[in-house]
Amino acid sequence: MGGPVGDAAVRHALLRWIVLASAVILWQVIAHVHGSVYFPPPAEIARHAVDLWFSGPVRHVFLTEEAVGNILPSLGRMAAGFAIAAVAGIALGVAIGRSRRVYALCDPVLQFARAVPPPALVPVLVVILDFGTPMQIASIVFSAVWPVLINTAEGARDTDPLRIEVAAVLRLTPLERLRFLILPSALPRIFAGLRLSLSLSLILMVFSELLPGTANGIGFTLTDAQSRSDLLTVWSALLLLGALGHLLNTGLLAVEKRLVGRGRTTTA
């Protein structure tokens, strides 16, 4: 059904698309007028991206061999790193956040570990795991786990004490308290951490594929195209990364709205 809220949402969505279209048109005009090989028009970039990755046969969902060999491995590494970080972050966050003493003891360590730039750990990870997929996934996990862990711990800490007392009176088991009380209360903060973690996973996925020893992936495509001065492929990879980031964030936001509620969604 329509209404003021629905109409406002439609107008907001329409305004966002108008702004995006205006930016693309402006880029197209400036690139055409300037004629620089370093800044090709977006229409040319999009055409090259489709030919490079999405002009395959129907039985392969229009994916070319280039897409199967580079996009899918990247998404697999990112998904694995993000999933491990999400599970570990939520589990550890709940365990730490439910005890004020444990939280006070662990907070300095968490803040220190979060402040360490993940690229700075690459030499250590290379020594331990060598170049390859395990090292790449480990670098994603180390970067992505902290937003989930810290936000989950904060959300678990903020559980209403009165509700905890009621749960004690009702003699709920620890598992029932976790399922019906702690997790629902912490869910908005958990999703705030997950959205930050998803962005970091995408960034670290690309960074890990820029390192020596990488044989495929979107990051590898970037460095390979740069070495060949193939600027259209470089811009196409950047366009692909932006589109992937937007699609993944939109999907996670849809899940958040379904589980948390439209009025309580976060804006991380």
Score class of each variant (00 low, 15 high):
Thr133Ala: 09
Ala88Ser: 13
Ala86Glu: 11
Ala91Lys: 00
Val50Gln: 12
Tyr103Arg: 10
Val58Met: 08
Leu52Met: 12
Trp53Asn: 11
Ala91Phe: 08
Pro118Phe: 02
Arg114Val: 09
Ser143Glu: 12
Val87Tyr: 05
Gly97Ser: 03
Ala88Arg: 01
Ile137Ala: 08
Pro117Ile: 04
Ser99Lys: 00
Ile84Asp: 08
Pro57Gln: 04
Gly89Lys: 05
Cys106Met: 15
Leu125Ile: 15
Ala88Val: 15
Ile84Gly: 08
Leu92His: 05
Arg59Leu: 11
Pro123Ile: 10
Arg59Phe: 14
Glu66Trp: 14
His60Asn: 11
His48Ile: 02
Asp51Glu: 15
Glu66Lys: 06
Leu75Phe: 08
Leu129Asp: 13
Leu52Pro: 13
Ala120Lys: 04
Trp146Ser: 12
Ser74Ala: 05
Val94Lys: 05
Ala144Asp: 14
Met135Tyr: 00
Leu63Ala: 04
Leu110Ser: 07
Ala120Cys: 11
Pro40Thr: 05
Arg77Met: 00
Asp130Leu: 08
Thr133Arg: 06
Leu52Phe: 14
Val116Gly: 08
Pro42Ala: 03
Leu75Met: 13
Phe131Val: 12
Phe112Asp: 04
Arg47Val: 14
Gly93Gln: 10
Pro73Leu: 02
Ala80Met: 09
Val58His: 09
Pro134Arg: 10
Ser55Ile: 11
Ala86Phe: 02
Gly89Ile: 02
Ile84Thr: 10
Trp146Ile: 12
Pro119His: 03
Gly89Ser: 07
Gly56Ala: 03
Ala120Leu: 13
Phe142Arg: 08
Leu92Val: 11
